[in-house]
Computed example of a mutant assay.
Amino acid sequence: MNNTLYKTKRWEKKRKRILKRDGYICQQSRRYGRTVSADTVHHIYPVEEYPELAFVNWNLISLSGPVHNKMHDRVTGDITELGKQWQERRRTEFERWVKEEEKKEC
């Protein structure tokens, strides 16, 4: 994990904006009609693999701490099935981003 990112003022401002955008509610719990406070902002596509997406709004969601722990295998660091489901939900945005990156390389 890139711990230095999470100590920056830029991250702290972005984190606050995302929590506010999501009403300080865990977005995974919200899908099931539950209102659970969010205290964590999760990178749907991991910042370790996609540092360019670290501050991109569509790649960030508010989660409760326990739900966030279900997005990653804390032993291996791998994305869990639940984490992969969120990646699938954001596939359109991700593919659009990939195409834009490819255009930049040309």
Rank of each mutant, 00 (worst) to 15 (best):
E81Y: 11
V41S: 01
H43W: 02
G23P: 04
D78A: 13
K7H: 11
R17H: 10
K84Q: 15
V56I: 12
T76E: 04
V41A: 01
S37I: 14
H43S: 03
R17N: 12
T92F: 12
L53I: 06
I18Q: 00
Q85F: 03
N69V: 10
I25R: 00
R96S: 14
E49C: 05
R31N: 12
T76I: 05
S37K: 13
E95T: 11
H72E: 13
G33S: 05
G65E: 12
P46C: 01
L19M: 07
G83S: 06
L63S: 06
T80R: 00
R30S: 15
I18M: 01
M71F: 08
V75Q: 10
R21V: 10
E93C: 03
A54Y: 02
S29L: 09
S64I: 12
C26Q: 02
L5R: 05
Y32C: 06
W11P: 05
W58V: 06
R17M: 13
T35V: 14
E105I: 14
K84P: 09
R30K: 15
Y6T: 11
V98M: 12
H68D: 08
N59R: 00
T80M: 05
G65T: 12
R91I: 15
E81A: 13
S29Q: 10
S29C: 15
K70P: 05
R10P: 09
S29M: 12
W86I: 09
E48A: 10
C26E: 04
R89M: 15
R17S: 13
K99Y: 11
R15G: 09
K70A: 11
N57L: 04
I44R: 00
H43G: 03
V47E: 03
R89E: 15
K9Y: 12
R89Y: 14
P51G: 07
D78C: 07
Y24T: 09
E102R: 10
R96Y: 13
S29E: 14
F94C: 02
F94M: 05
T76G: 03
E12I: 14
A54L: 05
K20M: 11
V75I: 14
F94T: 04
R96M: 13
F55G: 02
V75C: 07
E88G: 03
K70M: 14
A38H: 01
L82D: 10
R90W: 01
E12P: 03
